[in-house]
Measured scan of single mutants.
Amino acid sequence: SEHYTFDGEEQAIRFMRDMEAKNLKYELQIHNGKYIIQVD
Rank of each mutant, 00 (worst) to 15 (best):
1 S>M: 13
1 S>K: 13
1 S>P: 12
1 S>T: 13
1 S>F: 13
2 E>H: 14
2 E>Q: 14
2 E>C: 08
2 E>T: 14
2 E>F: 15
2 E>R: 14
2 E>W: 15
3 H>I: 15
3 H>V: 15
3 H>G: 07
3 H>W: 15
3 H>Y: 15
3 H>A: 12
3 H>T: 15
3 H>E: 12
4 Y>T: 03
4 Y>G: 01
4 Y>C: 07
4 Y>D: 01
5 T>R: 06
5 T>I: 14
5 T>W: 11
5 T>E: 12
5 T>A: 08
5 T>K: 06
5 T>V: 14
5 T>F: 11
6 F>L: 03
6 F>I: 03
6 F>D: 01
6 F>S: 01
6 F>Y: 02
6 F>A: 01
6 F>M: 02
7 D>F: 09
7 D>S: 08
7 D>C: 09
8 G>N: 15
8 G>T: 15
8 G>K: 14
8 G>F: 14
9 E>Y: 14
9 E>W: 15
9 E>L: 14
9 E>R: 09
9 E>P: 10
9 E>G: 03
9 E>M: 12
9 E>N: 03
9 E>H: 09
10 E>H: 05
10 E>V: 06
10 E>S: 06
10 E>R: 04
11 Q>V: 06
11 Q>M: 09
11 Q>H: 08
11 Q>I: 05
11 Q>Y: 06
11 Q>R: 05
11 Q>G: 08
12 A>V: 04
12 A>D: 01
12 A>Q: 00
12 A>Y: 05
12 A>W: 04
12 A>K: 00
12 A>F: 05
12 A>P: 00
13 I>A: 08
13 I>M: 12
13 I>C: 06
13 I>P: 00
13 I>K: 10
13 I>G: 05
13 I>L: 13
13 I>W: 07
14 R>Q: 14
14 R>I: 12
14 R>P: 07
15 F>N: 01
15 F>E: 02
15 F>S: 01
15 F>M: 04
15 F>D: 02
15 F>I: 02
16 M>H: 01
16 M>N: 01
16 M>I: 12
16 M>F: 02
16 M>P: 01
16 M>L: 09
16 M>T: 03
17 R>I: 11
17 R>Q: 13
17 R>V: 10
17 R>A: 13
17 R>K: 14
17 R>P: 01
17 R>N: 11
18 D>F: 10
18 D>T: 06
18 D>V: 07
18 D>L: 12
18 D>R: 06
18 D>N: 06
18 D>A: 11
19 M>C: 15
19 M>L: 15
19 M>T: 04
19 M>W: 04
19 M>K: 01
20 E>Y: 04
20 E>S: 06
20 E>I: 08
20 E>D: 13
20 E>M: 07
21 A>G: 08
21 A>I: 09
21 A>S: 10
21 A>M: 11
21 A>P: 02
21 A>E: 11
22 K>N: 09
22 K>P: 02
22 K>Y: 07
22 K>Q: 12
22 K>L: 13
23 N>F: 07
23 N>T: 04
23 N>Q: 10
23 N>S: 08
23 N>C: 06
23 N>V: 02
23 N>D: 07
24 L>S: 04
24 L>Y: 08
24 L>D: 01
24 L>V: 12
24 L>K: 09
24 L>G: 03
24 L>A: 06
24 L>P: 01
24 L>T: 06
25 K>W: 10
25 K>E: 06
25 K>N: 08
25 K>D: 05
25 K>A: 09
25 K>Q: 08
25 K>G: 07
25 K>R: 11
25 K>S: 10
25 K>L: 07
26 Y>I: 07
26 Y>N: 01
26 Y>L: 05
26 Y>A: 11
27 E>G: 06
27 E>H: 13
27 E>M: 11
27 E>V: 14
28 L>I: 09
28 L>R: 01
28 L>V: 12
28 L>S: 03
28 L>M: 10
28 L>P: 00
28 L>T: 04
28 L>N: 00
28 L>F: 11
29 Q>T: 14
29 Q>P: 00
29 Q>N: 09
29 Q>D: 05
29 Q>H: 13
30 I>Q: 05
30 I>E: 05
30 I>Y: 10
30 I>L: 07
30 I>D: 01
30 I>W: 05
30 I>H: 05
30 I>C: 11
31 H>Q: 12
31 H>L: 13
31 H>S: 11
31 H>Y: 11
32 N>F: 06
32 N>G: 10
32 N>W: 04
33 G>Q: 04
33 G>T: 03
33 G>M: 03
33 G>R: 02
33 G>D: 06
33 G>C: 04
33 G>I: 01
33 G>P: 00
34 K>S: 06
34 K>L: 11
34 K>H: 09
34 K>E: 04
34 K>D: 02
34 K>N: 05
34 K>T: 08
34 K>R: 08
35 Y>W: 14
35 Y>E: 00
36 I>R: 04
36 I>Q: 05
36 I>Y: 12
36 I>S: 04
36 I>G: 01
36 I>M: 07
37 I>H: 00
37 I>F: 10
37 I>V: 13
37 I>Y: 02
37 I>W: 00
37 I>P: 00
37 I>Q: 00
37 I>G: 01
38 Q>V: 15
38 Q>L: 14
38 Q>W: 15
38 Q>T: 15
38 Q>R: 15
38 Q>M: 14
38 Q>G: 05
39 V>R: 02
39 V>N: 02
39 V>D: 01
39 V>A: 04
39 V>I: 10
39 V>M: 08
39 V>K: 03
40 D>N: 13
40 D>G: 12
40 D>W: 15
40 D>P: 12
40 D>L: 15
